[in-house]
Design a protein around this nucleic acid. Structure first.
Length: 118
RNA sequence: AAAGUGGAUCAAGCGGUCGCUCUCAGCCUUAGGCUGAGAGAGGAAAGUCCGGACUCCACAGGACGGGGUGGCCGUUAACGGCGGCCCCGAGUGAUCGGGGGAAAGUGCCACAGAAAAAAUACCGCCGUCCGCCUCAGGCGGGGGGUAAGGGUGAAAAGGUGAGGUAAGAGCUCACCGGUCUGCCAGUGAUGGUGGAUGCCAGGCAAACCCCACCCGGAGCAAGACCAAAUAGGAGGGUUGGGUGGUCCGCCCGUGGCCCUCGGGUUAGGUCGCUGGACCCUGUGAGCAAUCACAGGGCAAGAUGAAUGAUCGCGAUGGCUCUUGGUAGGAGUCAAGACAAAAUCCGGCUUAUCGAUCCACUUUAGCC
Protein backbone atom coordinates (compact mmCIF):
# COMPACT_ATOMS: atom_id res chain seq x y z
CA UNK A 1 0.00 0.00 0.00
CA UNK A 2 1.41 3.34 -1.09
CA UNK A 3 -0.40 5.27 1.61
CA UNK A 4 2.08 7.23 3.70
CA UNK A 5 4.73 7.16 1.02
CA UNK A 6 2.98 9.60 -1.31
CA UNK A 7 3.26 12.41 1.17
CA UNK A 8 5.08 15.69 0.88
CA UNK A 9 5.73 17.25 4.30
CA UNK A 10 7.67 20.43 4.94
CA UNK A 11 10.81 18.49 5.73
CA UNK A 12 10.92 17.26 2.12
CA UNK A 13 11.12 20.80 0.73
CA UNK A 14 13.97 23.19 0.22
CA UNK A 15 13.14 26.35 2.15
CA UNK A 16 16.41 28.20 2.60
CA UNK A 17 17.93 30.52 0.08
CA UNK A 18 21.36 29.10 0.90
CA UNK A 19 20.17 25.62 -0.05
CA UNK A 20 19.04 26.85 -3.47
CA UNK A 21 22.32 28.64 -4.00
CA UNK A 22 24.27 25.52 -3.06
CA UNK A 23 22.54 23.50 -5.78
CA UNK A 24 22.96 26.19 -8.39
CA UNK A 25 26.70 26.17 -7.70
CA UNK A 26 27.51 22.49 -7.20
CA UNK A 27 24.56 20.49 -8.55
CA UNK A 28 24.33 18.24 -11.57
CA UNK A 29 22.27 19.85 -14.36
CA UNK A 30 19.83 18.10 -16.70
CA UNK A 31 18.03 20.16 -19.33
CA UNK A 32 14.65 19.17 -20.75
CA UNK A 33 12.42 21.13 -23.11
CA UNK A 34 10.51 22.94 -20.34
CA UNK A 35 12.71 22.54 -17.25
CA UNK A 36 16.21 22.59 -15.84
CA UNK A 37 16.77 20.02 -13.07
CA UNK A 38 19.58 20.52 -10.56
CA UNK A 39 20.40 17.69 -8.18
CA UNK A 40 22.91 16.93 -5.45
CA UNK A 41 23.23 14.36 -2.68
CA UNK A 42 22.42 15.39 0.89
CA UNK A 43 22.67 13.89 4.40
CA UNK A 44 19.14 14.60 5.57
CA UNK A 45 17.81 11.05 5.39
CA UNK A 46 15.34 11.84 2.60
CA UNK A 47 15.22 13.53 -0.79
CA UNK A 48 13.97 17.08 -1.02
CA UNK A 49 12.48 19.29 -3.75
CA UNK A 50 12.61 22.99 -4.49
CA UNK A 51 10.97 24.79 -7.39
CA UNK A 52 12.03 28.03 -9.04
CA UNK A 53 9.59 29.81 -11.34
CA UNK A 54 10.66 33.31 -12.19
CA UNK A 55 8.32 36.12 -13.09
CA UNK A 56 9.41 35.78 -16.71
CA UNK A 57 7.50 32.49 -16.98
CA UNK A 58 4.15 34.02 -16.11
CA UNK A 59 1.97 35.72 -13.55
CA UNK A 60 1.18 34.39 -10.09
CA UNK A 61 -1.53 32.00 -11.24
CA UNK A 62 0.73 30.42 -13.82
CA UNK A 63 3.63 30.09 -11.42
CA UNK A 64 1.48 28.49 -8.74
CA UNK A 65 0.15 26.01 -11.27
CA UNK A 66 3.67 24.97 -12.27
CA UNK A 67 4.84 24.61 -8.68
CA UNK A 68 1.87 22.44 -7.78
CA UNK A 69 2.33 20.21 -10.79
CA UNK A 70 5.98 19.65 -9.94
CA UNK A 71 5.20 18.91 -6.29
CA UNK A 72 2.52 16.47 -7.36
CA UNK A 73 5.00 14.69 -9.60
CA UNK A 74 7.58 14.56 -6.77
CA UNK A 75 5.02 13.33 -4.26
CA UNK A 76 3.72 10.56 -6.53
CA UNK A 77 7.18 9.17 -7.20
CA UNK A 78 8.99 9.57 -3.91
CA UNK A 79 9.49 5.81 -3.61
CA UNK A 80 11.20 5.70 -7.04
CA UNK A 81 13.36 8.78 -6.54
CA UNK A 82 16.83 8.28 -5.07
CA UNK A 83 16.90 8.82 -1.31
CA UNK A 84 19.04 11.54 0.25
CA UNK A 85 19.23 13.77 -2.80
CA UNK A 86 18.15 17.39 -3.27
CA UNK A 87 16.44 18.52 -6.45
CA UNK A 88 15.73 22.02 -7.77
CA UNK A 89 13.52 22.34 -10.83
CA UNK A 90 13.71 25.61 -12.74
CA UNK A 91 10.72 26.15 -15.01
CA UNK A 92 11.01 27.75 -18.42
CA UNK A 93 8.44 29.47 -20.53
CA UNK A 94 5.57 27.30 -21.74
CA UNK A 95 5.67 24.88 -18.80
CA UNK A 96 2.20 26.02 -17.67
CA UNK A 97 0.63 24.32 -20.70
CA UNK A 98 1.75 20.83 -19.61
CA UNK A 99 -0.50 18.31 -17.88
CA UNK A 100 0.63 16.09 -15.03
CA UNK A 101 1.18 13.16 -17.40
CA UNK A 102 3.38 15.27 -19.67
CA UNK A 103 5.43 16.47 -16.70
CA UNK A 104 5.97 12.87 -15.62
CA UNK A 105 7.13 11.88 -19.07
CA UNK A 106 9.53 14.78 -19.33
CA UNK A 107 11.11 14.58 -15.87
CA UNK A 108 11.19 10.82 -15.29
CA UNK A 109 14.69 10.41 -16.72
CA UNK A 110 16.13 13.45 -14.99
CA UNK A 111 15.04 12.29 -11.56
CA UNK A 112 15.33 8.52 -11.60
CA UNK A 113 18.80 8.37 -13.17
CA UNK A 114 20.18 10.85 -10.69
CA UNK A 115 21.76 8.53 -8.13
CA UNK A 116 24.19 6.93 -10.59
CA UNK A 117 26.10 10.19 -10.99
CA UNK A 118 27.54 12.81 -8.64
C1' A B 1 -41.47 42.40 -30.22
C1' A B 2 -36.98 44.96 -31.91
C1' A B 3 -33.16 48.41 -30.81
C1' G B 4 -30.98 50.68 -26.71
C1' U B 5 -29.69 53.11 -21.56
C1' G B 6 -28.52 52.56 -16.40
C1' G B 7 -27.84 49.27 -12.27
C1' A B 8 -27.63 44.73 -9.07
C1' U B 9 -26.27 39.58 -8.04
C1' C B 10 -23.46 35.10 -9.19
C1' A B 11 -18.50 33.41 -10.88
C1' A B 12 -22.26 26.32 -11.27
C1' G B 13 -22.87 22.16 -8.13
C1' C B 14 -22.25 17.04 -5.94
C1' G B 15 -19.21 12.79 -4.88
C1' G B 16 -14.63 9.18 -4.72
C1' U B 17 -9.12 8.61 -4.14
C1' C B 18 -4.26 10.76 -2.96
C1' G B 19 -2.09 15.30 -0.82
C1' C B 20 -0.93 20.65 1.55
C1' U B 21 -1.41 24.90 5.65
C1' C B 22 -3.50 26.17 10.35
C1' U B 23 -6.47 25.30 14.93
C1' C B 24 -8.41 21.93 18.67
C1' A B 25 -8.42 17.02 21.17
C1' G B 26 -5.92 12.39 22.16
C1' C B 27 -1.50 9.22 21.86
C1' C B 28 3.85 8.35 21.17
C1' U B 29 6.96 11.77 22.94
C1' U B 30 13.51 16.41 23.03
C1' A B 31 12.93 18.22 18.28
C1' G B 32 9.12 16.01 15.88
C1' G B 33 5.57 12.22 14.48
C1' C B 34 0.64 9.58 14.30
C1' U B 35 -4.84 9.50 14.66
C1' G B 36 -9.53 12.14 14.67
C1' A B 37 -12.53 16.62 14.05
C1' G B 38 -12.94 21.56 12.07
C1' A B 39 -11.46 25.78 8.93
C1' G B 40 -8.85 27.18 4.35
C1' A B 41 -8.57 32.99 -2.20
C1' G B 42 -11.38 37.24 -5.28
C1' G B 43 -14.94 40.40 -7.63
C1' A B 44 -11.55 42.28 -8.96
C1' A B 45 -7.30 39.01 -4.07
C1' A B 46 -4.51 42.56 -9.77
C1' G B 47 -2.49 47.72 -11.03
C1' U B 48 -0.27 50.23 -6.62
C1' C B 49 -3.47 55.52 -8.55
C1' C B 50 -5.74 58.09 -4.02
C1' G B 51 -7.49 58.05 1.29
C1' G B 52 -7.16 56.25 6.41
C1' A B 53 -5.94 52.85 10.73
C1' C B 54 -1.41 51.04 12.93
C1' U B 55 4.23 51.43 14.00
C1' C B 56 8.76 54.29 14.52
C1' C B 57 10.86 59.10 14.07
C1' A B 58 8.84 64.14 19.62
C1' C B 59 3.86 64.15 22.28
C1' A B 60 4.02 65.75 15.20
C1' G B 61 4.33 72.04 17.05
C1' G B 62 5.37 77.04 14.07
C1' A B 63 7.47 79.50 9.57
C1' C B 64 9.48 79.04 4.69
C1' G B 65 9.91 75.70 0.78
C1' G B 66 7.35 71.62 -1.62
C1' G B 67 3.00 68.68 -3.01
C1' G B 68 -2.27 67.87 -3.83
C1' U B 69 -7.48 69.13 -4.83
C1' G B 70 -10.83 72.51 -7.77
C1' G B 71 -19.08 74.19 -9.77
C1' C B 72 -22.28 74.08 -4.93
C1' C B 73 -24.21 71.58 -0.68
C1' G B 74 -23.96 67.20 1.87
C1' U B 75 -21.71 62.36 3.45
C1' U B 76 -17.42 60.05 5.94
C1' A B 77 -12.15 58.07 10.06
C1' A B 78 -10.53 60.17 5.43
C1' C B 79 -10.47 60.81 0.15
C1' G B 80 -9.05 62.90 -5.88
C1' G B 81 -14.59 58.45 -3.43
C1' C B 82 -19.96 58.57 -3.08
C1' G B 83 -25.03 61.14 -3.16
C1' G B 84 -28.24 65.19 -4.46
C1' C B 85 -28.38 69.69 -6.99
C1' C B 86 -26.41 73.87 -10.60
C1' C B 87 -24.32 75.30 -15.39
C1' C B 88 -22.27 74.00 -20.38
C1' G B 89 -22.11 70.35 -24.35
C1' A B 90 -23.91 65.48 -27.06
C1' G B 91 -28.28 62.44 -27.99
C1' U B 92 -35.46 61.90 -30.50
C1' G B 93 -34.93 59.83 -25.54
C1' A B 94 -33.55 56.75 -21.20
C1' U B 95 -28.81 58.76 -20.37
C1' C B 96 -23.73 60.23 -21.10
C1' G B 97 -19.31 63.71 -21.06
C1' G B 98 -17.17 68.20 -18.86
C1' G B 99 -16.52 72.03 -14.54
C1' G B 100 -12.06 77.93 -10.05
C1' G B 101 -9.38 82.47 -12.34
C1' A B 102 -7.00 84.56 -19.10
C1' A B 103 -10.45 91.92 -16.94
C1' A B 104 -3.54 90.87 -11.30
C1' G B 105 1.00 90.06 -13.89
C1' U B 106 4.83 87.40 -17.02
C1' G B 107 5.25 84.08 -21.09
C1' C B 108 4.00 81.08 -25.63
C1' C B 109 0.88 80.82 -30.09
C1' A B 110 4.24 76.60 -35.32
C1' C B 111 2.42 76.68 -40.65
C1' A B 112 -0.61 79.76 -43.51
C1' G B 113 -1.90 84.85 -43.88
C1' A B 114 -1.48 91.86 -45.57
C1' A B 115 -2.08 91.64 -40.41
C1' A B 116 -1.92 87.19 -34.30
C1' A B 117 -3.39 91.40 -29.85
C1' A B 118 -4.86 98.66 -27.70
C1' A B 119 -2.77 94.44 -34.70
C1' U B 120 -3.66 94.92 -39.97
C1' A B 121 -5.30 97.72 -46.25
C1' C B 122 -3.21 91.89 -49.96
C1' C B 123 -7.43 91.49 -53.48
C1' G B 124 -11.50 94.59 -53.37
C1' C B 125 -15.35 98.89 -52.63
C1' C B 126 -15.94 104.57 -52.75
C1' G B 127 -14.65 109.77 -53.44
C1' U B 128 -10.78 113.32 -54.95
C1' C B 129 -6.38 115.43 -57.87
C1' C B 130 -3.17 114.99 -62.31
C1' G B 131 -2.14 113.01 -67.29
C1' C B 132 -3.85 110.47 -71.83
C1' C B 133 -7.76 108.65 -75.08
C1' U B 134 -12.61 110.30 -75.55
C1' C B 135 -19.86 111.60 -76.67
C1' A B 136 -21.21 109.34 -71.99
C1' G B 137 -17.06 106.89 -70.08
C1' G B 138 -12.31 104.19 -69.90
C1' C B 139 -6.91 103.57 -68.71
C1' G B 140 -2.50 104.94 -65.81
C1' G B 141 -0.43 107.52 -61.59
C1' G B 142 -0.61 110.43 -56.73
C1' G B 143 -3.03 111.18 -52.21
C1' G B 144 -7.27 109.68 -49.03
C1' G B 145 -11.89 107.09 -46.93
C1' U B 146 -13.57 102.08 -45.68
C1' A B 147 -13.64 96.54 -42.45
C1' A B 148 -19.47 95.39 -45.86
C1' G B 149 -17.38 91.24 -49.67
C1' G B 150 -12.91 87.69 -51.08
C1' G B 151 -8.75 84.96 -49.47
C1' U B 152 -5.49 82.52 -44.80
C1' G B 153 -6.12 80.33 -40.19
C1' A B 154 -8.01 76.61 -34.46
C1' A B 155 -8.88 81.85 -33.77
C1' A B 156 -9.44 88.18 -37.68
C1' A B 157 -12.15 92.87 -32.63
C1' G B 158 -20.05 91.13 -31.01
C1' G B 159 -24.45 88.32 -34.29
C1' U B 160 -29.11 88.88 -37.43
C1' G B 161 -32.31 92.42 -39.74
C1' A B 162 -33.51 97.48 -40.94
C1' G B 163 -32.12 102.55 -41.42
C1' G B 164 -28.04 105.35 -42.93
C1' U B 165 -23.75 106.55 -46.27
C1' A B 166 -19.73 108.46 -51.71
C1' A B 167 -18.69 103.54 -49.98
C1' G B 168 -18.89 101.86 -45.18
C1' A B 169 -18.83 101.28 -39.95
C1' G B 170 -22.94 100.35 -33.01
C1' C B 171 -22.87 105.58 -37.00
C1' U B 172 -28.46 104.89 -35.42
C1' C B 173 -32.57 101.48 -34.09
C1' A B 174 -35.06 96.43 -32.79
C1' C B 175 -34.05 91.54 -30.97
C1' C B 176 -30.12 88.21 -29.21
C1' G B 177 -25.28 88.19 -26.77
C1' G B 178 -21.49 90.87 -23.42
C1' U B 179 -20.09 94.13 -19.12
C1' C B 180 -21.67 96.76 -14.64
C1' U B 181 -25.64 96.93 -11.23
C1' G B 182 -30.65 96.83 -8.17
C1' C B 183 -34.56 93.63 -6.36
C1' C B 184 -36.72 88.69 -5.54
C1' A B 185 -36.07 83.12 -4.71
C1' G B 186 -32.37 79.68 -2.81
C1' U B 187 -27.73 77.46 2.84
C1' G B 188 -25.23 77.76 -1.95
C1' A B 189 -23.62 76.89 -7.08
C1' U B 190 -27.31 79.49 -9.63
C1' G B 191 -32.06 81.12 -11.48
C1' G B 192 -35.92 84.94 -12.43
C1' U B 193 -36.82 90.03 -13.28
C1' G B 194 -35.59 95.36 -13.92
C1' G B 195 -31.97 99.38 -14.91
C1' A B 196 -27.44 101.41 -17.04
C1' U B 197 -23.71 100.97 -20.86
C1' G B 198 -22.89 100.99 -28.21
C1' C B 199 -19.61 97.30 -26.16
C1' C B 200 -12.85 95.66 -22.79
C1' A B 201 -11.53 93.30 -27.87
C1' G B 202 -8.87 84.94 -29.23
C1' G B 203 -6.52 80.39 -27.15
C1' C B 204 -3.06 77.85 -23.64
C1' A B 205 -3.42 77.68 -16.36
C1' A B 206 -1.18 69.16 -17.67
C1' A B 207 3.40 77.22 -19.00
C1' C B 208 4.84 80.21 -14.70
C1' C B 209 1.23 82.14 -11.73
C1' C B 210 -3.29 84.00 -8.63
C1' C B 211 -7.42 82.48 -5.23
C1' A B 212 -9.70 78.94 -1.68
C1' C B 213 -9.01 74.52 1.05
C1' C B 214 -5.96 70.21 2.54
C1' C B 215 -1.12 67.72 3.52
C1' G B 216 5.16 66.47 8.83
C1' G B 217 8.44 62.00 7.06
C1' A B 218 9.13 56.82 6.37
C1' G B 219 6.75 52.33 5.99
C1' C B 220 4.65 45.46 8.49
C1' A B 221 11.60 44.06 5.19
C1' A B 222 6.98 49.33 9.98
C1' G B 223 8.29 47.86 14.77
C1' A B 224 9.16 44.67 19.46
C1' C B 225 11.44 40.50 21.82
C1' C B 226 14.69 35.92 21.90
C1' A B 227 18.84 32.96 20.36
C1' A B 228 23.47 32.71 18.02
C1' A B 229 27.21 36.17 16.69
C1' U B 230 30.68 40.63 16.32
C1' A B 231 30.80 44.07 11.24
C1' G B 232 26.78 47.13 14.57
C1' G B 233 30.21 43.84 20.75
C1' A B 234 33.31 45.21 25.31
C1' G B 235 36.60 48.83 27.77
C1' G B 236 38.85 53.74 27.78
C1' G B 237 39.31 58.81 25.94
C1' U B 238 37.11 62.91 23.51
C1' U B 239 33.11 65.64 21.38
C1' G B 240 27.55 67.19 21.98
C1' G B 241 24.18 64.51 18.95
C1' G B 242 19.22 63.40 16.91
C1' U B 243 14.77 65.12 14.67
C1' G B 244 15.70 62.12 6.52
C1' G B 245 14.25 69.72 2.51
C1' U B 246 15.75 74.38 5.59
C1' C B 247 15.21 77.40 10.03
C1' C B 248 12.92 77.82 14.76
C1' G B 249 11.64 74.85 18.41
C1' C B 250 11.77 70.19 20.77
C1' C B 251 14.09 65.61 22.59
C1' C B 252 18.17 62.65 24.45
C1' G B 253 23.02 61.29 27.09
C1' U B 254 21.02 56.03 24.28
C1' G B 255 24.76 59.34 19.87
C1' G B 256 29.44 60.81 16.72
C1' C B 257 34.87 60.37 16.46
C1' C B 258 39.64 58.13 18.11
C1' C B 259 42.49 54.10 20.58
C1' U B 260 42.76 49.02 22.51
C1' C B 261 40.68 44.03 22.76
C1' G B 262 38.00 40.79 19.61
C1' G B 263 37.59 38.32 15.09
C1' G B 264 34.78 36.68 9.79
C1' U B 265 29.01 36.49 7.25
C1' U B 266 21.18 34.49 9.80
C1' A B 267 17.62 37.95 4.74
C1' G B 268 17.47 32.37 12.13
C1' G B 269 13.03 32.06 15.53
C1' U B 270 8.61 34.25 18.15
C1' C B 271 5.29 38.29 18.21
C1' G B 272 3.10 42.13 15.14
C1' C B 273 -1.07 38.64 12.36
C1' U B 274 -5.91 39.25 11.89
C1' G B 275 -12.50 40.71 16.02
C1' G B 276 -12.85 44.81 12.31
C1' A B 277 -14.70 52.43 10.35
C1' C B 278 -16.39 43.58 10.36
C1' C B 279 -20.61 40.48 8.22
C1' C B 280 -26.09 39.14 7.98
C1' U B 281 -31.27 40.37 9.07
C1' G B 282 -34.82 43.88 10.66
C1' U B 283 -36.74 48.77 12.27
C1' G B 284 -36.35 54.04 12.12
C1' A B 285 -34.31 59.12 10.05
C1' G B 286 -32.93 61.08 5.20
C1' C B 287 -34.76 62.25 -2.07
C1' A B 288 -29.98 59.78 -1.59
C1' A B 289 -24.88 58.87 -0.19
C1' U B 290 -25.14 57.73 4.84
C1' C B 291 -26.40 57.38 10.00
C1' A B 292 -28.79 55.40 14.59
C1' C B 293 -30.80 51.25 17.18
C1' A B 294 -32.06 45.93 18.01
C1' G B 295 -31.09 40.72 17.24
C1' G B 296 -27.77 37.09 15.37
C1' G B 297 -22.72 35.56 13.60
C1' C B 298 -16.89 34.90 13.59
C1' A B 299 -15.52 33.92 8.17
C1' A B 300 -7.68 32.33 5.30
C1' G B 301 -3.29 33.75 7.97
C1' A B 302 0.92 31.26 4.46
C1' U B 303 6.52 33.15 4.60
C1' G B 304 11.07 29.24 -1.54
C1' A B 305 5.09 31.22 0.53
C1' A B 306 -0.83 26.32 2.07
C1' U B 307 -6.02 26.52 -0.25
C1' G B 308 -4.01 21.31 -4.89
C1' A B 309 -3.92 16.81 -8.42
C1' U B 310 -6.89 13.23 -10.67
C1' C B 311 -11.46 10.50 -11.74
C1' G B 312 -16.92 10.16 -12.08
C1' C B 313 -21.99 12.39 -12.42
C1' G B 314 -23.41 16.55 -14.57
C1' A B 315 -26.77 22.46 -14.13
C1' U B 316 -25.54 25.05 -18.49
C1' G B 317 -23.56 26.05 -23.37
C1' G B 318 -21.79 24.89 -28.73
C1' C B 319 -22.65 21.61 -33.03
C1' U B 320 -25.58 17.71 -35.63
C1' C B 321 -30.21 15.00 -36.22
C1' U B 322 -35.59 14.84 -35.42
C1' U B 323 -40.02 18.84 -36.51
C1' G B 324 -43.22 23.01 -41.68
C1' G B 325 -41.20 26.11 -37.29
C1' U B 326 -40.95 26.58 -31.80
C1' A B 327 -41.04 23.68 -27.52
C1' G B 328 -39.45 18.88 -26.53
C1' G B 329 -36.32 14.53 -27.56
C1' A B 330 -31.64 11.94 -29.22
C1' G B 331 -26.30 11.98 -30.24
C1' U B 332 -21.60 14.32 -29.54
C1' C B 333 -17.95 17.94 -27.55
C1' A B 334 -16.62 21.29 -23.64
C1' A B 335 -17.61 22.24 -18.70
C1' G B 336 -13.89 26.83 -20.12
C1' A B 337 -12.88 33.98 -18.63
C1' C B 338 -9.75 37.32 -15.99
C1' A B 339 -6.86 36.57 -12.06
C1' A B 340 -4.61 34.06 -6.79
C1' A B 341 -4.42 36.73 -0.26
C1' A B 342 1.00 38.59 1.94
C1' U B 343 -0.52 44.23 8.11
C1' C B 344 -5.70 45.65 7.75
C1' C B 345 -9.69 48.66 5.91
C1' G B 346 -12.55 52.65 2.33
C1' G B 347 -12.35 53.86 -2.86
C1' C B 348 -10.73 54.39 -7.99
C1' U B 349 -8.85 52.20 -12.45
C1' U B 350 -7.95 48.14 -15.49
C1' A B 351 -8.89 42.61 -17.03
C1' U B 352 -12.98 39.16 -17.68
C1' C B 353 -16.01 32.95 -20.35
C1' G B 354 -20.73 33.34 -19.33
C1' A B 355 -25.65 33.34 -16.44
C1' U B 356 -29.82 35.70 -14.00
C1' C B 357 -32.73 39.80 -12.37
C1' C B 358 -34.59 45.00 -11.91
C1' A B 359 -35.75 49.95 -13.64
C1' C B 360 -36.20 53.09 -17.77
C1' U B 361 -36.15 55.03 -23.18
C1' U B 362 -37.39 54.98 -28.52
C1' U B 363 -39.98 52.67 -32.56
C1' A B 364 -43.83 49.35 -34.21
C1' G B 365 -48.21 46.51 -32.96
C1' C B 366 -52.66 44.93 -29.87
C1' C B 367 -56.72 45.95 -26.20
Amino acid sequence: MSRGRERFPTSARLTRRSEFLALSRGGRRVHTSHFVVLSKNNDKGQSRLGVTVSARVGKAVVRNRIKRLLREFFRRHRDEIPAQRDFVVIARKGAEKLSLNEVEGELRGAFFAGSRHG
